[in-house]
Amino acid sequence: MASRTEVRVPLDLWPRRGGWKGKVVKVYKSVGERVSKGEVIAEIEIEKAVLEIESPTDGVLVEVASEGEEVSPESIIARIEGG
């Protein structure tokens, strides 16, 4: 069975202000699509910046957040089946 990787909003972003919230404003990949390591999967808008979340691995997207979704540290942005 192929390994599955969860892509989360890192908890280590501004750790002491862990309560921050953002919104998924752009999703570049859809379920079933191949992604490569380093490729941007989605963008999260916070008040001060737009964060580009990249894929940590090569694989196929089996789940991805939708545009407009509210996220915070630890929220899952995508699941990737590896290999």
Partner: peptide, 24 residues
């Protein structure tokens, strides 16, 4: 508003985690 914001690639390396660990 989106266009006036800086775009940042979320990339946390081992140095980043070291700082996070130390200050925490």
């Amino acid at each position: 508003q989106t266009r006036v914001k800086p775009r940042l690639r979320v990339r946390l390396n081992s140095e980043y985690y070291k700082v996070a660990r130390t200050v925490a």
